[in-house]
Design a protein around this nucleic acid. Structure first.
Length: 466
RNA sequence: UCCCCAGUAGCUCAGUUGGUUAGAGCGGUGGACUGUUAAUCCAUGUGUCGUAGGUUCGAAUCCUACCUGGGGAGCCA
């Protein structure tokens, strides 16, 4: 007798005739008057539950097995057998069913065996992992996460843990969450009446990071190829299906690289991760294809087998101005593209992810490398159909005079960037990097429509339960 | 934060020219049948109609505010 996962049994890792114990939760129970019950047990190891055939000779058949309902926890010991029924190749002929816990009041158990809306499941974030859809999402999420680490590891990148807490409010990528231990009911004040942050934990104002980029640049300018993969926080009041207040971001940063280098790095990375999912999570993807998004497999297969289309911002503007599509917002060179414009490019014009490059400098961040034309910077966004911006990156301005001139032009204070400027003073090198919104990738790969359903416990405005 | 839509049974929804006892399917429960598997068949219970005000003889239905959710926009990843 040995413990086995549901996946061990269904994939044939355990031998027919071998006695095993499988532990998990009941998905459904069906009783047959032939003297047996069928119990589907899932344990998270794969998409499908294993069918357990329970004969009525078991001591606790009447007293316990017939009382099992969806959600009950069990350990089943029995012999692996080829299934006589359709729907599965292997099953377990139970010799013993141990019940860890029944479900109180099955009538109100929130995860009843019926279709639920994603909005409803979100209200039960502590139980929705037991549903097939959330289980599938989390296995794919894990697969993507592991694949990304593997991708970078195989190419000699170092995973750098950039800080979660930052004392710099100059990252410029959005609203920040304050980190403080001050007594909010009794704030210390300066003589001018301002809050006296010198009394705070860090002796100054502190926040949760909105990006690891500035910090990870310092390690790129020493270890050459690095990346961060961790949580980031944005206090934006964004109420959409593609924004979270707490989300995970992958940010590679590469010394001696230019814009095209990281554009191709991003393409290779996405293809690598998607291929991993197609190979390792075919069971979950079959479910997404069938129940969530009929086009998801075609879409992913197209992505991994075609080169990404690259396009300059300037050319994109021309395409948008000359296309037949009517837009609510006009397109003109120098302004940021609207959602409808990005969607047209990715969904209609290209029909696949598109790499947009070389944006006007005035609509991009101060640290992006200025191009020789004097008008644009070496920035790139990768737009995915249905999602929008999934990756944003750039070559970084490594020339101190150019960086300083942008800091001045944008009304920023050079003193706030002293350590960032040091990188340009001491052995500066060209370098480039990008940020991938990890949950946006999970959304794209699974075909799920709301980003709140691809992270275990979503945090969003007015929403931080569990 | 802005625009639009929604909130009725455990869940998904129907129900308004304002009218008396608010319905269905699914789920649950009991039974029948069955190597079953989104099982099928019979029976069965369930409601502060999102919250608070207002109009009215009378409000699930009309009005106002608020809350929550969804779609879109902005911000961005």
């Amino acid at each position: 007798m040995s413990f086995a996962t549901v996946d061990d049994v269904l994939s044939g890792k355990t031998a027919v005739g071998e006695q095993v114990t499988v532990r998990g939760w009941v998905r459904t129970r069906r009783d047959s008057k032939a003297g047996i019950s069928f119990i589907n047990v899932h344990d998270g190891s794969c998409f499908d539950p294993v069918q357990v055939v329970v004969p009525n000779e078991l001591d606790n058949y009447e007293s316990e097995v017939l009382r099992l309902t969806t959600g009950a926890s069990v350990a089943v010991t029995g012999v692996v057998a080829e299934s006589a029924g359709k729907g599965q190749s292997f099953e377990i002929q139970a010799e013993k069913v141990h019940v860890y816990g029944f479900v109180d009041d099955p009538d109100t158990y929130p995860m009843s065996p019926k279709p639920h809306s994603m909005e409803y499941l979100r209200e039960f974030a502590h139980l929705r992992a037991r549903t097939n859809v959330t289980g599938a999402v989390m296995r794919v999420r894990n697969c993507l996460s592991q694949a990304l680490h593997r991708f970078f590891h195989e190419r000699g990148y170092l995973w750098v843990a950039t800080p979660i807490i930052t004392a710099s409010d100059a990252e410029g990528a959005g609203e920040l969450f304050r980190v403080s231990t001050l007594d909010m009911m009794n704030l210390p004040r300066t003589e001018q009446g301002d809050v006296d942050f010198s009394k705070d934990f860090f002796g100054k104002e502190a926040f949760l990071t909105v990006s690891g980029q500035l910090n990870v640049e310092t390690y790129a300018c020493a270890l050459s190829k690095v990346y961060t993969f961790g949580p980031t926080f944005r206090a934006e009041n964004s109420n959409t299906s593609r924004h979270l207040a707490e989300f995970w971001m992958v940010e590679p940063e590469v010394a001696f690289a230019d814009l095209n280098d990281i554009a191709y790095l991003a393409e290779d990375m996405l293809k690598y991760a998607i291929n991993a999912v197609l190979e390792e999570r075919a069971d979950d993807m079959a479910f997404f294809q069938q129940r969530i998004d009929k086009g998801v497999l075609d879409r992913l297969n197209h992505v991994v087998s075609n080169k990404f289309v690259h396009m300059d911002y300037t050319d994109a503007v021309e395409i948008l101005q000359n296309c037949d599509q009517q837009f609510n917002y006009p397109v003109s060179w120098g302004t940021d593209l609207q959602s409808e414009h990005e969607r047209y490019l990715a969904e209609v014009h290209v029909g696949a992810p598109v790499v947009l490059k070389n944006y006007p400098k005035d609509i991009k961040a101060f640290y992006m490398r200025q191009n020789d034309d004097g008008k644009t910077v070496a920035a790139m966004d990768i737009l995915a159909p249905g999602i929008g911006e999934i990756i944003g990156g750039s070559a970084r301005e490594e020339r101190l005079e150019r960086l300083d001139s942008r800091i001045v032009e944008m009304g920023l204070n050079a003193d706030d960037y002293s350590w960032y400027r040091d990188l340009r003073r001491y052995g500066t090198v060209p370098h480039a990097g990008f940020g991938l919104g990890f949950e946006r990738l999970v959304t794209y790969v699974t075909g799920m429509t709301n980003i709140r359903d691809v992270i275990p416990f979503p945090r969003a405005p007015k929403s931080a339960e569990f």
